[in-house]
Design a protein around this nucleic acid. Sequence first.
RNA 1: CGGGGCGUAGCGCAGUUUGGUAGCGCGCUUGCUUCGGGAGCAAGAGGUCCGGAGUUCAAAUCUCCGCGCCCCGACCA
Length: 577
Amino acid sequence: MRWSQLFIPTLRDIPSEAEAASHQLLLRAGYIRQLAAGIYSYLFLAKRSLLKIERIIREEMDLIGAQEFHLPELHPAEVWQESGRWKMMGSDMFRLQDRWGRDLCLGMTEEEVMTTIARGELRSYKQLPQLWYQIQTKFRDEPRPKSGLMRVRRFTMKDSYSFDIDEKGLEASYRKHYNAYCRILSRSGLDYLSVEAHSGAMGGKKSHEFVLPSDAGEDVVVTCDACDYLANLEKAESTPQVIENDASTKANPLEEFETPGQKTIAEVAAFGGLPASSHIKSLAMVISEETESKAVLVLLRGDHQLSEAKLSVLVSSETVRPAHPEEIQKWFGAEVGYIGPVGISQVEIIADKALEGRSGLVAGANKNGWHLRNVTPERDFKAHFEDLREVVAGDGCPHCGQPLALKKCIEVGHIFQLGRKYSESMGLRVLDEDGKERAPVMGSYGIGLERILTGAIEQNHDEAGMMLPAAISPFEVVIVPVNFKNDDQREAAEMIYERCLKSGLDVLLDDRPERAGVKFKDAELIGIPYRVTIGKKVAEGLVELSDRSTRLSTDVTLEEAVVSIREKVQAAPLADF
RNA sequence: CGGGGCGUAGCGCAGUUUGGUAGCGCGCUUGCUUCGGGAGCAAGAGGUCCGGAGUUCAAAUCUCCGCGCCCCGACCA
């Protein structure tokens, strides 16, 4: 296409609202414009890039036998009420009413709709497995949209759903998706990881997350260089740095001591002279069930942090929150900062494993202004010991013991083994070989298109702009005649442009009456991977071919140009399959 | 939901403290010169100063009430 006729509104200055590199570049390069918080218009370049991502995804889904649907994004409340998620989704869901006052919502995901279709039509195990997918707009009322397309309220997702008669079938469908996701991300030119994850509100057991390592990410993944252990921080386990107990403290009796105004572990540690790791951190938490809520006292080593995700899995409740000050006062008779496990009987106590076998610890005395020393778990209080702590960098790998590292990542895909949650609650049944009714086992598999683009930019950019992988760049090559008014240059540019088109390359001709510098800057900003520069040397039959990411350029003859570009463009993406 | 910041031309900003009727850079239009790394000169166009109410002879500026956007935390398939 010809640049002079396109709408590519590049900006010299960085819009002040943008912080993340991808956000700044998407705006500056004229890919997107904001309409409202977390709601963006995708202009020509973004749409083109997203179409390429979509095509890759579609090809890979079709390859595993998945069938594409187009589903409503406006859903009646009933189907969400049946699955029980109308309530559960809370204010993350956009809700509205029609003229008759009936409740509707904008789709966040399609389990309900897919299951509704399935239960009306699937009758026999012979029709299974089925793999259905769609690539459509999703809505989610994020409490805090941020970083451009990273976390938005309206986005595009490919989500697929599998229906199998048994777990073995599900395992196969899951495997297919796992492999397809690997191929999608490799073909898109991304550096990615797949990690075991916490399945959260989706229900079900097995789940993998596909993430792109990037400092701009919001997810944290725990990695071990020595043995390839990989897990989401929410789920990761580790062996904490060991603290040697002072054996002589074992027999020491409990002793109260006064700690006026010292509430935090750091304050008490400084005041009492023992390190934070010799303290017990006592957290009063409230677990809310549908009908009632109950309190638990969570204990951690003073220098450790609670993983709320692990706690909520442990108590199998979605809503776990810190207790309010009044509740703490009621249950413990003391303020936050002075509570502890000793003498507490009405509240269940769950302690992190790092406290097992310790002695001589400091804990709150359940009396304002006082703490206890020489606290010894088991002797002074009873608790269940569980893994509750959040891994920190340097902890030992649970497999090999080597130090773990934490990596920030962008979550792009998530696959789940749902089980029978939706088929059971929504009445999807088929007959099995024995003529008995059975609820099929389902899986759900999502991947975010904008996140792929955002992640690609975060992983591939420099001061000058984006450096998109050819497979997802809006154009594969840009032709820049230094001076379009020069006849020789213009003719050479037109010729190469025509040949590129004929050979099937996605080519952009910069035919604008701009100065060379402006064209170079723009080409670099929008991130086209290859550039053909046509300047004075055209008189000798030479043009310059340059690579956006390596910044290397070589002179090639007019004849060679198109062939060389084709080779470069085709080299990368499919290599490893 | 807690904490912080911002809102003046398409973009980046000054002007607000101390009230006097809006300015700079980039971009845009026209002309001339220039032409391989965001050109120069000249002449122009472009504004409900986020909105409403109030104080005042006079409000971008002061007061009150809203709205929007960004960042940190909480939250989050």
